[in-house]
Every structure is written in C-alpha cells, then in structure tokens.
C-alpha cells in the first residue's frame, strides 16, 4: 500500500521534475559554465572570472545595475501606494457585482501583449498624441509637450504593467481582514491614516511582500517598457544583457550579467525580507 502510494507520488512528480530539470536547471548550468569562459589575448577560450570582474570594474555596468534596481524599487513603491486604495475599495467598499466588474477591468489590459500596451501609451503621450491634442484644444498648453522618453513616464508605464500583480495579492490578503478590526480601531479613536498604518498594512503584510517581490522582479526584468518609453537615458540592465548577447556577440559576458542579475536581485529581496522581519515561507503560504 505504502509503496504503491510512493510510486504514484513519483509518477505524478516526474513530469514536474523533468520539466524543471530540462527547461530551467540544464540551460542555467550551461549559462553558468558559459559565464566563466572568455577569450584570452590569443583568441582562445579559457576559464576566467573576467566576465564577473568586468561588472565591478566598468562603472557603466555597475551604475546601470544600481540605476535599474533603484527604479525597480521606486516602481514597486509607487505600485504599492496606488494598489492599496484600489484593492481596499474593491474588497471593502464596492458592492459584490461591481467587484467582479472592477477586477475584470484590472485584468483587461493583460489581454493584449505588453508591446501593444506600450504602443498604446506612446500613441497617447507622444508630442502629436491624443493627450496633447486635447491639451491644445482646451488651451491648457500653447505648445505640445513631449511626455515620452523620460524617467517619470517610464515609471508610470512600469507601474501600469505591474498594477495587477500587486492588487491581486493585496485583495486576497484584505479579504481575510475582519471589518470589525477597522471599526474597533476607529472606535478606539484612531484616525484613518492610523488605521491604515497600524491595522490594514500589518494585516496585509504577507500580501504586500509577495506582491512587492513579483513587481520588483517584473520591473527589474522588464525590457520593452524602459526601452520604448524611457527613451534615450534609460539604459536598463536587461538591455545590457540583450546587447551583450545580440549586438556584441559576447555570450560569455551576457551570461555573467544574467547571473549577476539573479544574484543581486535575490540579495535585494533578502534584505527586504530581513528589514520587514519576514521569511519567504510565510509570504508564499
């Protein structure tokens, strides 16, 4: 009986393990090996740490990463600030029927590809775009304003793309929040802001953390939005990896960057969890 259970257990697990191994582990091992290879002065392939060393020696790589990480953190924070009232409204204030409608509304942008979404923004915001047309019509501006190709627009685009991934965990966290806790706090003379700070946010902490991790990783790993909306100053770290692989044919350097991105972003998440005194297991549960 017991061995029968074991067998079926492994049978069910096998496709998952196989999938993980073939599609995730194996290519990563290959990439890892690649990242430690490099050409010496003679043009021969040798084992080397140079690809990793380059990252720290060349200020441009290092700075790009820092910049990317900082913007990803800013994006995560903005997404959180926006998503909190949205999910609160959906869970606690909207009527059940409106709730479903609002959730669908949030999902709607994800029915088109990211590329289409970004181009949508570009049509809206460009100098000869829809928004400028109305601003000119209403006389609010005399000259069309270029709203694309700057960091603020890029962050807005990233926040828009990430919104759902913050709202969904927040909604599920908030659903378990008993309304009477909010009322009790109000009864004990707490202001709205205090209730948010002392009751709602601590209650939603696991949801916030899992949302923040997803949004942070998505923003960090995004390629299209920074590239298309951020314009000329927005070198994103993923673009650098792409450039190493595609434009410079330097797969070894690209692989090293890929692993550095993995390590450093994991490090940032680890620090974030430490600062908020949480463990990954709690968040996932």
């Amino acid at each position: 009986m017991k061995s029968g259970f074991r067998l079926s257990f492994w049978l069910f697990l096998a496709p998952v393990l196989l999938w993980l191994f073939l599609l995730i582990v194996l290519p990563h091992i290959d990439l890892l090996l690649l990242s430690f290879r490099g050409e010496n002065d003679m043009g021969d392939l040798v084992w080397t740490f140079d690809n990793y060393k380059n990252f720290f020696i060349e200020p441009i790589y290092w700075n790009t990463f820092v910049r990317t990480a900082l913007y990803a953190i800013v994006t995560t924070f903005c997404t959180f600030v926006l998503a909190l009232p949205v999910s609160f409204y959906i869970v606690k204030l909207a009527r059940p029927r409106t709730r479903g409608f609002l959730t669908v509304l949030l999902l709607l942008p994800f029915w088109v590809s990211e590329l289409v979404r970004v181009y949508g923004w570009m049509i809206l915001l460009r100098e000869s775009g829809v928004l400028n047309y109305f601003l000119l019509k209403t006389g609010l501006v005399q000259q069309p304003v270029e709203m694309l190709y700057n960091d603020a627009t890029m962050i807005m685009g990233l926040v828009y793309t990430s919104m759902l991934f913050m709202v969904v965990p927040l909604i599920s966290a908030m659903e378990s929040l008993d309304d009477s806790l909010i009322e009790a706090a109000s009864d004990l003379e707490a202001s709205r802001f205090t209730i948010l700070r002392t009751i709602i946010i601590p209650h939603c902490k696991p949801g916030i953390t899992s949302g923040a991790i997803v949004v942070f990783m998505l923003a960090l790993g995004n390629y299209l939005t920074p590239n298309l909306m951020g314009g000329k100053n927005s070198l994103w770290f993923t673009e650098q990896i792409y450039n190493q692989f595609i434009a410079s044919f330097n797969w070894n350097q690209g692989a090293a960057f890929g692993f550095l991105l993995l390590l450093l972003s994991s490090g940032i998440i680890w620090i974030g969890l430490k600062l908020s005194r949480q463990r990954l297991g709690e968040v996932a549960a």
Partner: peptide, 16 residues
C-alpha cells in the same frame, strides 16, 4: 570590433 562598439553604445545610452 563589435565588443568595442557595444561598450561604447552602452556608455552613450547610460550617459545623462
């Protein structure tokens, strides 16, 4: 040449 050019292009894009 391409590696050399790649670095330069990154540098230009990253510059403020």
């Amino acid at each position: 040449l391409e590696i050399m050019e790649g670095k330069i292009l990154d540098k230009i894009k990253a510059a403020k």
